[in-house]
């Protein structure tokens, strides 16, 4: 933890991989592959929102889909009304972040325990899902955008060049923009984690009472971390809506929240690279398993989740790292004998 960021090889490797994909991707892949990989990029942004607040702030949210969905609907409604996408995209970050701050106020200033927080965040998602499912009638419209209930909102605009509403991005360009967002987000989060603010977060994660006794305002700090996570999840929701050009209540589903948890656990709590790898691997696997039509998708997700909690509680990347360290430690001893 004490090595500074610019000396961390993993940090530069991740950025290099990201930039290489950004440049080479559209040249190498066909349209279908680009669409597929763009999906992984969007979901990676989404999973980072949880990996950050859980791994580096000690805040476990069971309702990250509430912010993801809020961002998706905010972007859709705003862009349909405005006829352009730049400001709506910013709004997809801002509104969920504000909502996260408000919810965080009640949870952290109320000093709710972990169980209570888990329940509250999950219930918030459930209620969003219920409410949005009940907006089928024509009376539920915000400006020109009809919410459409369980049918969702069709024809969400594709991202356009800022200031030029007619200049829509093609799939290759959209992939490059999203990849750039992911790389920038990774750099910003790593910098934030290494900053003074991030160190206080880690301190709070390790021991809340001690951090409070040292004079840090734990409650305010947690609200800020939670709101940042909410904003990132909302931005991912906006990206999801414009990527699909369609949004429906499933963005608020419990499955969506569960997936963020599963990816973070699989990759390892306390890393950012691990969850991104987990998104790619697990989404690919579930796509392949889904094609076989043998096992239900929920069944697979639930099974993975239970296996992770019971057998690999530390997560993929840290377990792998520990195994490597143990292997290194054992080798010289073996040589001595």
């Amino acid at each position: 933890m004490e090595t500074s960021l610019h000396r961390d090889a993993g940090f530069w490797v991740m950025i290099a991989i990201g930039l290489a994909l950004l440049v080479a991707g559209p040249l190498v892949w066909d349209l279908f592959q680009i669409m597929q990989i763009t999906q992984y990029v969007v979901l990676s942004v989404y999973v980072l929102s949880l990996s950050y607040i859980w791994g580096f702030g000690g805040i476990l949210s069971f309702g990250q889909a509430a912010f993801f969905g809020l961002g998706a609907y905010t972007f859709s409604v705003a862009s349909i009304n405005m006829g352009e996408t730049t400001f709506p995209f910013l709004l997809a970050f801002g509104l969920p972040a504000l909502f996260g701050a408000a919810l965080g106020y009640f949870m952290f200033y109320g000093k709710l325990s972990d169980v209570y927080m888990g329940v509250v965040t999950m219930v918030v998602t459930l209620i969003f899902w219920k409410l949005i499912n009940h907006t089928a009638g024509p009376e539920y419209a915000i400006g020109d955008a009809r919410l459409g209930g369980f049918n969702g909102i069709p024809s969400v605009p594709v991202l356009n060049v800022p200031g030029k509403p007619e200049a829509w991005l093609d799939p290759g360009q959209m992939f490059q923009v999203f990849m750039a967002i992911l790389v920038i987000l990774y750099i910003v989060l790593r910098t934030l984690i290494a900053s003074d603010f991030g160190r206080v977060s880690l301190g709070i994660r390790e021991n809340e009472t001690r951090a409070a006794l040292l004079g840090y305002d734990v409650r305010r700090h947690k609200v800020i971390v939670f709101a940042i996570g909410a904003g990132i999840a909302g931005m991912a929701g906006g990206m999801w809506a414009t990527y699909q050009t369609f949004v429906d209540p499933n963005v608020f589903s419990l499955e969506m929240s569960a997936k963020a948890l599963i990816w973070t656990m699989a990759g390892g709590v306390g890393t950012l690279a691990g969850p991104i790898i987990a998104v790619v691997v697990l989404q690919y696997l579930s796509l392949k398993l889904g094609e076989m039509h043998v096992l239900n998708n929920n069944f697979i997700l639930g099974g993975i989740m239970m296996v992770l909690v019971l057998l690999v509680p530390k997560g993929g990347l840290p377990t792998l790292r520990d195994a490597l360290v143990a292997l290194k430690a054992r080798t010289p001893a073996a040589l001595q004998r």
Binding site: F299, G302, L308, V309
Partner: peptide
């Protein structure tokens, strides 16, 4: 909490199958 949530998804999926 995480394990029982996994169980919940597993049961929904299992009963659907």
């Amino acid at each position: 909490l995480l394990a029982t949530w996994g169980l919940s998804l597993l049961m929904i999926g299992g009963v659907t199958m």
